[in-house]
Amino acid sequence: MKRWQSFVALMAHREAPTALAWVRIAVGLVVLQSFFEMWRTDSYFLVLSDRVTGEGFRSFAGTHWLLDLVGGTSTEGLTRLGLLVGVGAIATVLGLGGPLGPLLTLQACLALFVIHPASGGGHDRVITNALWLLVLSPASRTLSLDSLITTGKLQDLRPRPAWARYLIIVQLAVIYGTTGMQKLGSDWFPWGDYRAIYLALLVPAWSRWDLGALLGQAYPLTQLGTAVTWWWEVTWPVVLLAFWFRKSREQPGKLRAIFNRLDLRWAYAVIGVGMHTTVWVLMELGPFSAIMLALYPALWHPDELRRRGG
């Protein structure tokens, strides 16, 4: 019962919504960029529209209430849906209309992602998860037009519920931790010669460049990358422990003291930025790196962000 009370109290905690606002802006920009990319490469209608009523090459069975409402996978229907994504994402970035921007973007994205799942990836799920947490959060209360309209200032640092930020941190730990757990192929381990990244860079669908001999020469680096990636991912839930130790820093314990002295968040975040940047340079995985990094501001308390100029 006492643990439940502590949990309820933790979920009732309030703080300035600055970190959530940065996540909101970043997620909105990632959605915009992702859909702009589909328009720029002429792949939007090819991948998603129907072969008879649209400009695609096949028909689809997937359905969603919003997709039905806008006219399905016809050119007109997808144009309307694309506009809804655009309007919702712009409102999300600007922080206009409270949770309506993320909600509209979320439902429009869900409608689009249901059409042709084989053309998507894990990043689509990260996007929808992030948008739902933004719907539930007070992310548009600061660094937003909403704030400007209601208070006359761009920033409104009055404390708001913080639990959505905690859920974003949990989501990060879950994504990385379980991704690591799924990497059971021998190529991720010493007995497979740490060959996973080398092999991944040879998959034509994902490699951004034909690296040729350079890839063979850089094999030791790919082995190091394989080992670091696996350990970094699978141990990510430790970051949750680090947060708990920070929250309960007044309590005794050697492990708590060590964690609080080291501040593991920085180690995990720095490796994460390095890993996602490398992935982005070497592989074409769509908005995967960007949407993951968009969640990183949630790792810092608003006071920390303020101290660092955020």
Binding site: R125, L202, V203
Partner: peptide
């Protein structure tokens, strides 16, 4: 609400891509 999960990024590498 879009909270479906599933992250099997390169769990097992394709040896015949």
């Amino acid at each position: 609400c879009g909270v479906a999960q599933g992250w099997s990024m390169f769990g097992t590498l394709n040896r015949a891509p």
